[in-house]
Nucleic acid binder design. Structure first.
Lengths: 225, 225
DNA sequence: ATAATTAAAATAGTAATACTATCTTTACAA
DNA sequence: TTGTAAAGATAGTATTACTATTTTAATTAT
């Protein structure tokens, strides 16, 4: 399915496009693994360079700093999600069923997808759960937003909001509802793992967390006429 | 109303209780102002010490590191919120009206409250909006949780969930709903300020952001039988 | 085939961060 | 007056987050 797709991202996200070179792809691959295991705060370019057998200076030719690399990775994820959603709903006629599928993909992104050769999607999904909000929760947010760094996330939200408006054109909170649902998907997954008393979602038999029922209950209750 | 209340927090949150000494209170007061203006990443104990006319070493006698100080401040905020909620709903008979008041307090915490002499609540609220999730989005979360560092937040959520269960005892997602609503209140306020296309909430005439209508629409739609 | 260009490695260095340690001064209490 | 604890003063360390420079290797253009 997603094997070999090339994801092109806003050029402000990097200095040199990491998709273009072996070293660039290695930076992405290795940083995903390392941020997943170390957490974003403990992750450094020095450790990354050491792990890759490269140098700090080489990495700085691709990304100005580790925060930009995080923004890049999260953006990559949203583009990948948009693609997954697109190919999975295009043959569904009913808008309500399309939305159910969308929520399922958002809540269970690593189920039922073909392995991507480049990026460890399961690790990236864990990064999204724990670190995604740090990509915008920064004093730089307005500056970065002006440069279009959150465009991929915003486009994904808009597409889903448009589906909602198809079902209920009078609903005035479509954008808020969508961003809430996406953020909630990751947040509740985090709570299920670390602060279980804040949620009702539990691991199922396969040790997986499925927030999609909660999300769809909220969504369809909210937009009911 | 809240003038002079002394808020007592889990003793694992600090080394020496900052409420006990002048220097301690100064640390809290000044750090709230500085984290608000600089953002958490740019804020350091060195800058704080310099601003206070004290020394780094002195601050380290109160908090092991700046992250713990953040956890302390956020925890302080939830205790303060719980208190605001308590005194504001105790004379309301109807549970539904109580919940509406709760959402109003969560969404508009700085409206209609008596000034606290110690802490700049408006600055602290801005910190909550931009930095609160960083208090738990860390690799240390399980360790900190075990020590009870998130107990105040969890207790607040539980109290609100109990109100919801009073209205609809069969609702299976009460905890998830509450944590979603609280997180959403701050998130949508952030989006309204910095990523407006992700929300439908706009500043009103007084330049204030009021998410409470959105929250109540979601809440009551979700728990409707 | 050679020269020109570019990528990346190797090395070095700096300012700031996140601490830790120690010693002195001050204050107040026993 | 002596003891104790808080806080100030000072110093120092390892790590972080970079920047700069030089060298080597690989590609591409002529």
């Amino acid at each position: 399915m997603s094997t070999g797709i090339k994801i092109h991202l806003n050029e402000h996200l990097f200095i040199r496009d990491p998709e273009d070179t072996g070293l660039g792809r290695d930076i992405i691959q290795t940083s995903v693994r390392m941020i997943d295991t170390l957490g974003f705060e403990q992750f450094t370019f020095k450790k990354l360079a050491h792990e890759m057998g490269s140098t700090e200076a080489s990495i700085y030719r691709y990304f100005t700093n580790k925060h930009k690399l995080l923004v890049y990775l999260i953006s990559w994820y949203w583009v990948w999600q948009e693609y997954q959603i697109e190919i999975n709903i295009k043959n569904i006629g009913d808008t309500k069923k399309q939305l159910l599928k969308v929520l399922d993909i958002i809540a269970n992104p690593t189920v039922d997808f073909t392995k991507n050769t480049q990026i460890d999607i399961e690790a990236l999904y864990r990064i999204v759960i724990s670190e995604a909000s740090k990509s915008y929760l920064t004093k730089e947010v307005d500056e970065l937003n002006k440069k279009g760094m959150y465009a991929d996330y915003k486009r994904l939200c808009k597409k889903i909001a448009d589906l909602i408006l198809l079902l209920n054109p009078d609903y005035i909170y479509a954008n808020a509802l969508v961003s809430m649902l996406i953020e909630t998907a990751n947040q509740q997954a985090f709570f299920a793992l670390h602060l279980p008393s804040l949620t009702n979602i539990k691991k199922n038999k396969d040790e997986k967390i499925d927030v999609s029922n909660f999300l769809s209950q909220i969504l369809f209750a909210a937009i009911k006429k």
